[in-house]
Design a protein around this nucleic acid. Structure first.
Length: 184
DNA sequence: CTATAGATAATCT
DNA sequence: GATTATCTATAGG
């Protein structure tokens, strides 16, 4: 199967299925100077419109409008007065679903990511949703960007991964759902 | 190793 | 006015 067809068929699904299947996939940003930064997706979370923890729960607003658009675009939001976090919109247009990218195993552009992350060790460059946005320089300016367009790349895993389901982090509602996925 | 306080401002009620 | 899909430093075991 053509790679882009495989990508689209995964993202067309609901956020929960997509979040599980995106584990092990490669996520990169192509920067202005041609540098690729990013790595292997090792942790995700699913958010749906019927989910009280989701930004889309109360319908479309200015902030979350990208979530209600077509699958395969980036939804970036600002939180806690200082952090950016990146999602991939999934499902059918209008459903208000997305997958939060929570962690990457760095593979590309490590020196650049190190500089942006205060020369922390490599296992602390992208091990959190706001940390990876800092390492890859993802901000609100990137929201609504089409994935596998000019800037962001998403490629299927090159091997199978065992995936664990866990409770989501940092939410106060709908906490019992096992909608966080991590590599075993 | 776990626990917790403080930073800091957009977003929504 | 309250909450927040977080991170870091620091304190304690």
């Amino acid at each position: 199967m053509d790679m882009q067809v495989a990508v689209e068929s995964v993202l067309r699904q609901g956020a929960v299925a997509a979040a599980e299947q995106l584990i092990g996939w490669h996520f990169y940003k192509a920067e202005q100077d041609g540098t690729l930064t990013g790595g292997v997706i090792t942790e995700t979370e699913a958010y749906t419109q019927s989910d009280a923890a989701s930004h889309s729960y109360n319908g479309k607003t200015q902030r979350n409008s990208v979530m209600f658009g077509p699958a395969g675009v980036l939804y970036v939001y600002f939180t806690y007065g200082m952090h950016w976090c990146a999602n991939i919109v999934t499902g059918a247009e209008g459903e208000g679903e997305a997958v939060l990218i929570r962690s990457l195993q760095p593979t590309h552009g490590i020196p650049a990511m190190r500089r942006r992350r205060g020369n922390r060790p490599d296992n602390q460059l992208c091990n959190g949703p706001a940390k990876l946005c800092q390492a890859l320089v993802i901000t609100g300016a990137d929201s609504a960007q089409v994935i596998n367009g000019s800037t962001f790349l998403l490629q299927p895993a090159d091997r199978e991964y065992r995936v664990l389901r866990k409770p989501r982090i940092g939410i106060s509602r709908n906490t019992e759902k096992l909608w966080r996925f991590v590599v075993a």
